[in-house]
Design a protein around this nucleic acid. Structure first.
Lengths: 213, 213
DNA sequence: TTTCATTTGTGAAATAGTTGACAAAGAATG
DNA sequence: CATTCTTTGTCAACTATTTCACAAATGAAA
């Protein structure tokens, strides 16, 4: 039973499992069957069993899954106890929202720097961090060696900045710019958040819904 | 050749096609083959042809696709010229960012109201709209009949508010709250944006990458 | 006009992902 | 302790999605 490759759909479901198990824990529920969990999450029971089985069975026949234990294991798989260094570029509304709203620490990351090229912002604080001017980016990266960059910048600036960041050792991007980064290095990981695309998909579904009925 | 059902993966690719075609147009490129477009987008040529063919072939053999025409058609499919009424609830950092950053009009939507229960915010302006107090939500909905609600609120408030909004005629949600809405009505469309899940997926990929090498 | 190169549209094959079914294991009950 | 019920892990069937392959159509060149 060697290390099989985990498929993308499974990986994308893991954070959701983790979230739902957290809720169950808060509700003081100690055990849950795949059937019950499936009902709550709107999945099929066999999919859940199949998913968990990718990492080795951690349920118990006739009993189900132990909520806290299962959550712990999935958290471990997701690496929630890691401390991947993250910097955020662009402290506009969106950048601030991301920095303030999201608990990076609970997700295996540590936000260690925020940068903006607007000199008026430099020095002001967001999420317990002082916004730094772009000129300091290079020396900061050499010193602190962050691995991930969050891009909350206009699309015109994105590609150039991404290239520079890669040369400074960044190996992962969380990209909010309305632009698909062109990264040649296959070791660099890009997670795109195209809010515009998401809205358009919703708009399409509404549109179709209205025309069908 | 009746109306076949379009699969979700295809639909999710449409906004991306639309975006890339827009870029080609800005670059004054008039025609493009599926092969070239595939290369740019990191897809396979046959996938692109297959996708476009869901809506009827609009390419020309030996020539390729006419960029402007193709973009126009995809825009039409996506309904970019519609005016679906949208309200946004929760004018915190994230709500403001979404309201200000995204051009709703270019995506078939019209942002017609922003609401927040913080009385200090009421009256201030974002995205050319005055933030309104939650008390006015009900009468506003009865009058203006928005179809979509953007939820930029804490997860504890989400479910209750969603239920209320459905009773007020909302038929689609763009949900930014860290919570999976439980909607029984199958006619109501939910588009979740779970930023936390997205970050965790990226963190997982970084984590795995580091351990593999 | 004829030939050659290109490129779509499309059905079939291949791959990926989900669901179904059931043996085996353990929990609960009497 | 034996029996019954529950539920997992897992393999197989099924469904969805992507890729392949090629005929037919068109453009470009000679």
């Amino acid at each position: 039973m060697g290390k099989q490759v985990i498929s993308t759909p499974v990986i994308r479901r893991l954070p959701r499992y983790y979230r739902f198990l957290g809720e169950l824990e808060r509700e003081k529920i100690e055990r849950i069957s795949s059937r019950e969990l499936a009902q709550r999450m709107g999945l099929s029971a066999s999919q859940i069993r199949q998913d968990f089985n990718c990492f080795g069975g951690f349920g118990q026949q006739g009993y189900g899954y132990h909520v806290r234990e299962l959550r712990e294991i999935i958290g471990e798989i997701l690496g929630v106890h890691e401390h991947t260094g993250v910097i955020l570029i662009g402290a506009g509304n969106l950048g601030k929202a991301v920095a303030a709203h999201l608990d990076f620490q609970k997700r295996g990351c540590e936000l260690i720097g925020i940068f903006d090229d607007n000199p008026l912002l430099a020095g002001t604080a967001t999420a317990n961090l002082t916004i730094m001017p772009m000129e300091t980016l290079e020396s900061f990266c050499r010193q602190r060696k962050p691995q991930v960059a969050v891009l909350c910048i206009p699309k015109d600036a994105a590609q150039q900045l991404a290239d520079k960041l890669i040369s400074l050792g960044i190996a992962g991007f969380w990209n909010f710019s309305h632009f698909d980064l062109r990264i040649t290095n296959p070791d660099v990981i890009v997670e795109n958040v195209h809010l515009g695309d998401s809205l358009m998909t919703l708009a399409y579904c509404m549109h179709r819904r209205n025309n069908e009925k």
